[in-house]
């Protein structure tokens, strides 16, 4: 597999003159529901994205999705669709939207929002079962989301 992310590099060259991070409360969705600007202001690293998607303590995407490219990681779930070819089905801006808040594209989905920190019912302090103290951290950081997008863009149907 060729781990390059042309689309993101292009989006960056056009959009983010200043490499400023976009906070979870500042994300701008366009009229198609996509998010054009890199959240970190930087390009993503697909190799890191692959690790984040497989790691239980980070994206844990394989809990719900099967991804052939990550078949070294055991136990892929079946709750969401297979992600092979996701880079053909979606643009980077659309994938960013799905990652930030999947409910913008998929109403009522069970997929968690990885970059939303407000509006939850009984938010907890991670997996302790205790009430959250203060602001929540997003499930993934800005750069982690860019890394995941970069990896997803490598998933092309041959």
């Amino acid at each position: 597999m060729k781990l390059v992310s042309l689309t993101i590099a292009v989006a960056l060259a056009g959009g983010a003159a200043m490499a400023a991070e976009v906070g979870p409360r500042e994300v701008a969705f366009n009229e198609d529901g996509a998010v054009e600007v890199s959240l970190s202001g930087m390009a993503g690293d697909p190799a890191s994205g692959a690790e984040i998607m497989a790691a239980k303590s980070r994206g844990n995407c394989v809990a719900c999705h099967e991804i052939t490219a990550l078949s070294d990681t055991p136990f892929h779930g079946e709750v969401g669709p297979m992600l092979d070819g996701a880079g053909d089905r979606w643009t980077a801006a659309e994938l960013r939207s799905i990652l930030v808040n999947s409910k913008v594209m998929f109403e009522d989905t069970v997929m968690p929002a990885y970059y939303v920190i407000d509006g939850f019912n009984r938010p907890g302090d991670a997996y302790t079962g205790k009430a959250a103290q203060g602001d929540l951290d997003p499930l993934l950081a800005a750069q982690e989301i860019e890394d995941v997008i970069a990896f997803l863009m490598t998933l092309k149907d041959e």
Binding site: V62, E78, V79, V110
Partner: peptide
Amino acid sequence: ASCHEENYGNMIRA
């Protein structure tokens, strides 16, 4: 319901 009504029969990780 997200897990036990909409997704029973499916694997969620292991």
